[in-house]
Simulated scan of single mutants.
Amino acid sequence: MPDLAHIAQPVDTPPLVFVGPSLPAKEVHQLLPGAELRPPIRRYDLHMARMLRYSVFVIIDGVFAQTDAISPREVVDVLQDGALVFGAASMGALRAVDCAPVGAIGTGSIYRLFRRGVLDREDEVAVTFIPERPFPALTLAMAAVRLTLNRAVRQNRMPREHAIQLIHAGQKLHFQERTWDAIFSSAGCLMPNKKLRSWLNEQDPKAEDARHLLKQVSSRIASDPELTRRPRATRLPFTDPDQTRSRSSLVELGPKFEASKPGMLLWLLQSNRLERYLKRAADDVKDGMKKLSFDLSNDWHQRLDYLTWEDLGCSDTILAKRILASVIDQMNDSDESIPEFYRLKAVAERMRRTGIIGLPSKIGGPMGIGR
């Protein structure tokens, strides 16, 4: 067996930036001098780079559909191994939201829309691009369309009703077809005048978010150069998440998963992930979400992964169990139960190490959670 002792040692490495259609390479180098650029991120890119002892990862763009996308589990792995992961604009925003509870750092308008649960579909950031010449993108991301039209209304460039009509039209288009011309045509609207057309084409919320992130990373490295030489937490290679999942099942986890159920509900509420699993739930279950409230004990965050229903101080335990049962059914259908369980375990461990409480002692609001 090869000697892996050297792998854990710190070494100077440049920040690694995964970028494609959101920003040109020249601008990345200007905003983050010394950065090493890679194509849009895909499955296992982080594992491989961390094994080579890169310490700072900046995720802007990523692939999906025909190629396996970077998984949240992989991001969690490198975070727990001591690396820093920043994200914005596109795939970076999605994974920063997924992994924020365990230390991923996100920024920008698109990140905030997902973080607050305003958006929950990954295809909101999807665009078409040419791999050999990734910048600029050939189509528009729906999230960028929303932000641009909202900005147009605020600046009195178009009436609100007109913007809403265009947003509905954009939603109906496949991401490979979504352009301003196609959106206006699909909405049955007159094409914008030259001035408005020029303004629309100048707006690029994804690029704005990417620039903001790169400036933020540059500033942090300048103030603390040691960020680029963080040692690995282990000498061992990473485990293939797919192999781990194929060996695991809820049956094998058994009592561990059962004991985590109250904490699972709290974790899903906290991370705004609950709604994505209730798409097909009965209406009374959805309505029940609005009635949930908790009176948590002071030390709940130290034992998130084995809370009891009594610990939650839930106002309606029966209703909470019904909601969670519906959620778990949908997680099972989408093979998300095991990954979600491990996300919960990672969050619980992070909370124990840092003392982060993460939720107020009382949870309220329209969906049973403070926003």
Score class of each variant (00 low, 15 high):
1 M>S: 08
28 V>N: 07
33 P>I: 00
36 E>C: 13
40 P>T: 00
43 R>I: 00
48 M>C: 15
48 M>G: 14
53 R>S: 09
61 D>P: 01
63 V>E: 00
64 F>Y: 07
70 I>G: 00
71 S>T: 10
72 P>E: 10
73 R>A: 11
79 L>D: 07
82 G>I: 08
90 S>Q: 01
91 M>A: 02
91 M>V: 00
92 G>I: 04
94 L>D: 02
96 A>Y: 15
102 V>Y: 15
105 I>Y: 04
105 I>M: 12
115 R>I: 03
117 G>C: 13
124 E>H: 07
126 A>Q: 00
137 A>C: 06
138 L>A: 09
142 M>H: 13
144 A>R: 00
156 N>G: 12
161 E>N: 15
164 I>H: 15
167 I>W: 02
173 L>N: 12
176 Q>R: 14
176 Q>T: 12
180 W>I: 05
183 I>H: 02
183 I>R: 01
198 S>H: 08
204 D>L: 03
209 D>Y: 02
223 S>M: 15
223 S>Y: 15
224 D>V: 07
243 Q>L: 15
245 R>M: 14
246 S>D: 06
253 L>A: 09
264 M>C: 05
269 L>I: 06
273 R>G: 03
277 Y>G: 01
293 S>Q: 06
296 L>F: 03
299 D>S: 10
304 L>H: 04
305 D>W: 04
307 L>V: 03
317 T>L: 07
323 I>C: 12
329 D>A: 14
355 G>L: 08
359 L>K: 09
360 P>S: 05
361 S>E: 14
363 I>E: 12
367 M>Q: 10
